[in-house]
């Protein structure tokens, strides 16, 4: 494969940028949360590419731990969103502004 490290890091950086775009643009908490997962996805792609081109296994191990932490984070975050919906009947961030008043 003649594709270099920079191409993979470019894809990872663009994934991170798209995720950040979604976090700022969207109002739906679930879509914001999916965009956060997209940012994590970009980061783990960068880690795997660095690990492959560096010739060590450590990046892959980090990705293993990141995936575990992300799974725990998604379970807890979605439980919080469901509890929030039960309390306020909405998951739109522009309607959840009690703290800003």
């Amino acid at each position: 494969m003649t594709v270099g490290l920079n191409a993979f890091i470019l894809v990872a950086g663009l994934l991170f940028a798209i995720g950040m775009f979604g976090v700022i643009l969207r109002k739906n908490t679930l879509v914001i949360y999916m965009s956060l997962e997209l940012m994590l996805n970009g980061v783990i792609l960068a880690l795997v590419a660095f690990s492959r081109y560096n010739g060590t296994m450590d990046g892959n191990l980090f990705v293993f731990f990141i995936i575990t932490v992300a799974a725990a984070e998604v379970a807890l975050g979605l439980a919080i969103i469901v509890a929030l919906f039960r309390l306020r009947q909405s998951v739109m961030v522009d309607q959840l502004t009690s703290l800003s008043r």
Binding site: F16, I18, Y53
Partner: peptide, 24 residues
Amino acid sequence: FTLLVILTLSVFAGGQHLPETALL
């Protein structure tokens, strides 16, 4: 988004990007 894309493109693409390492 545009600023972040320009930053990424300027570092990892184009003429004066970071040096490529060979695949081990």
